[in-house]
Nucleic acid binder design. Structure first.
Lengths: 145, 145
DNA sequence: ATGATAAAAGACAAAAATATCTTTTATTGT
DNA sequence: ACAATAAAAGATATTTTTGTCTTTTATCAT
């Protein structure tokens, strides 16, 4: 088990790649994205379709069409991508899977697990979709394999 | 998506419950465990079988048999349970699902995600299987729903 | 207008996770 | 020894996640 679903991992990688290409002034087609983030093309298409429906990513059809972000979207937190794909379980869920775990009715892990959740929440809210554009252009980061 | 698989959540809840009962001097049968942690009984049986095979939990068959922990086992870290069920992905894996993500070849999230992983690792290594026995006996924690 | 392009939508397929049921094996108390 | 108990093992079923394929719709360039 990983922290995020495979679907969500592909989504985040794709989003970072598209953000970089948007920063460079391009729209990107599925094929190019899938190639650069090493994901199955038709599956990724479904994922981006969902992000598009949810308004997280922008797209246009037809020649020179593709996926892209505008300036406002580049400033949205990565958390929006995660929520769109995996829901908000990771931000609010109990470490032991209990529905009614809370401050007043805690599971044994509650206190420690809260720190983990907070760290994840912090990471996903302080990271914007466009945050790594310059680093990616400079080749400082990998999104592939 | 949660941090741990459903299987692992059941495993941890079961382990905490059995630990408490072991502390009180009892062995516990599947039915009693499943009832107290609200899990499907035959599925839980499979999970505990695996923990038993891996030497994480102890068991004996026959009348008055059941699952239990000895003193040494009660001091083992919860991490052993997680590793037995979910593997070590959660301790070492990349946040974006990349196989070759590393210090020298990092994904964009690498630095921030390391903090999350470290927090999880710390939680699972400082929490022993028997850590909550007294709290559980006093009814301070829930393992149910 | 029309042909080419590329995403959207819908139906379908495979694999993995979750869950159940039946039979076997070990242990205990009588 | 034997009947009762309880976990182990094996076979099977269901659901969810992951992945594919085909058809439709929107956009662009000519």
């Amino acid at each position: 088990m990983a922290i995020f679903s495979k679907t969500c991992e592909y989504a985040m990688r794709a989003v970072f790649y598209v953000a970089q290409r948007s920063h460079e002034g391009y729209k990107v087609g599925i094929k190019e994205i899938a190639g650069h983030i090493n994901s199955p093309e038709p599956f990724l298409a479904k994922i981006l379709q969902q992000l598009s429906r949810d308004g997280v990513i922008l797209s246009t059809k037809g020649p020179n069409g593709g996926f892209y972000f505008d300036a406002a979207s580049l400033n949205r937190p990565l958390a929006d991508v995660v929520t769109a794909i995996d829901g908000d379980d990771i931000f609010t869920g109990c470490g032991l899977g209990l529905t009614y775990c809370s401050e007043s009715n805690p599971c044994p892990l509650h206190e420690e697990f809260k720190k983990v959740r907070n760290q994840i929440t912090h990471m996903l809210h302080t990271t914007t979709i466009g945050k790594f554009n310059l680093g990616l252009i400079k080749g400082k980061f990998t999104l592939n394999k």
